[in-house]
Nucleic acid binder design. Structure first.
Length: 446
RNA sequence: CGGGGUGUGGCGAAGCUUGGUAUCGCGCUUGGUUCGGGACCAAGAGGCCGCGGGUUCGAAUCCCGCCACUCCGACCA
């Protein structure tokens, strides 16, 4: 109950975590492979998890005033090239449409890897006055990036996501939006997905192409590697200038609006699996599980058993519990192995209490994993040795990209984020010895 | 993109060295028995042996190319 156990054999997670992950994705019937590398079929149960994520986040976005839109899938090359940093970042992994029917196109079209440029093209048309601001748009769609290596949920060539794109009158308002949405993601991950997160800012090296600031929620997986759960960018007015988006302000002068974007993808499902899964397979937090409870009637050949089970199913459903029923004619022993027994009296309340308990336990376990495998470091060697098999290292940093590059070369780690919650664990950057500016979380990332 | 491993019914494998009718277990279907602790009997269905080319009288097996999966790097939100 509340836990989807598969009898099929899967690789032991402590022997080969990567293979364990792949086994869970395929044997829990979340994913199937297609004939194209990196393009996956999301099967009903996997897609249902995404639908639950969608429903919950979409309601939160709308409650904060965002509106859903849909923009084209193709971006003319000339449009993509308007912002220099942006195109440099994405061009290497774009796929291009070059034929329409049997005719070669005059200009090739990129299959969207992200939609900043399309939103800007549209915003230029619809933003004219301060009265048109803010614009708080969101899009649910798939995007395409021609990745060299791919893994289910973690790195698809085509993946489902949502991308919010907002425009604001002032820098302050846009910065506030960037923070607000990061917190929406962080709260969702902690409260609904039972995944503890570290909120922080990306270094310049790791930030989104074209952004002034990139913020992130970082999670630790069961193997102590890092996974970025969600991301939120502050663009300043860079894109607005590149795309010539202007509005007339209250002062009767022309201004460029300030912009944000933010997104989460199906990668989050990979994060759930690698945070909560165990050697029995998939473990989902009850709040996101498509099926929370399965009623397992045993001895169904006996009169009244099936009817009683179906009545129980209705009771649970009416109480708002996502319940199912196993009407298969598996043997008593097989069914007993799937089952957890509760008295029928006040069944809906006791099931809810149990689900709450499971949710809390999953969070507590993940939090313990994060805390137990995060440590303070005062030298490159300490980070190298401490993170060799995963783990987060807190270390001071001078802010120079050169030192960040050395950390990758000498310790094998990348900067995960500059946490909002800073601690002073030293005065100098251990890499170069210069005065330290920030405490950074270092680790090996997915 | 570089290096290693892999590809045989739905799943897991054997067969390949040494070319000669496609095998096994699980699962599936049907019938029957059983059924309060992961059942059993019987009958049956299901395979372009990843794809393409070559060698050969004959290729799952040998040779070449490609595709995909997977691991390690590089790259990358």
């Amino acid at each position: 109950m509340a836990k989807d156990k598969k009898v099929e054999q899967i690789t032991d997670m402590d022997v080969d975590f990567a293979q364990w992950f792949t086994d869970v994705c395929t044997k829990a019937e979340l994913i199937d492979y297609s004939s194209i590398k990196g393009m996956y079929i999301m099967r009903p149960y996997g897609y249902a998890i995404w639908e639950n994520i969608q429903h919950i986040l979409d309601a939160e976005f709308k409650a904060l005033g965002h509106e859903n839109v849909y923009l084209p899938m193709l971006i003319p090359e000339s449009l993509l090239q308007k912002e220099k940093d942006h195109v440099e970042g994405f061009a290497p992994e774009c796929a291009w449409v070059t034929y329409g029917g049997s005719d070669k196109l005059e200009e090739r079209y990129c299959i969207r890897p992200t939609s900043e440029t399309l939103f800007c093209e549209h915003y230029k048309n619809v933003i004219h006055s301060w009265r048109d601001l803010p614009k708080l748009y969101n899009q649910w769609c798939s995007v395409l990036r021609w990745e060299k290596t791919s893994r289910p949920f973690l790195r698809h060539r085509e993946f489902l996501w949502q991308e919010g794109h907002t425009m604001h009158e002032s820098e302050e308002e846009a910065r506030a939006e960037t923070q607000r949405m990061l917190n929406v993601y962080a709260d969702f991950m902690e409260n609904t997905l039972a995944m503890p997160v570290i909120r922080g800012r990306k270094t310049d090296k790791e930030k989104f192409n074209g952004a002034e600031e990139t913020y992130t929620v970082e999670c630790m997986m069961h193997d102590h590697k890092a996974l970025q759960g969600g991301t939120s960018h502050y663009f300043g007015d860079g894109f607005a200038k590149a795309f010539d988006i202007t509005y007339t302000g209250k002062d009767n002068q022309l201004h460029h609006p300030y912009q944000t974007s933010w997104g989460v993808s199906v990668r989050m499902i990979g994060g759930i699996i690698m945070t909560h899964g165990d050697n029995s397979g998939l473990v989902l937090p009850p709040k996101i599980a498509p099926t929370q409870v399965i009623v397992v009637p045993v001895a169904m050949h006996k009169e009244g058993v099936r009817e009683a089970a179906e009545k129980l199913l209705e009771t649970l459903k009416n109480a708002g519990i996502r319940a199912g029923i196993d009407l298969s004619d598996q043997s008593m022993g097989w069914k007993a192995a799937q089952k957890l027994t509760l008295p029928l009296e006040n069944i809906a309340d006791s099931v809810k209490a149990l689900l709450d308990e499971v949710q809390k336990e999953l969070y507590a376990k993940a939090l313990k994993n994060l805390q137990d495998n995060t440590f303070d470091a005062h030298s490159v060697e300490e980070v190298r040795d401490g993170c060799a098999n995963g783990g987060f290292a807190r270390m001071m940093w001078c802010g120079d990209e050169a030192c960040e590059v050395k950390m990758k070369e000498q310790a094998g780690v990348t900067s995960r984020c500059i946490p909002f919650e800073q601690q002073h664990i030293g005065d100098v950057c251990p890499v170069c010895g210069k005065p330290a500016k920030h405490m950074v979380i270092w680790g090996i990332a997915y």
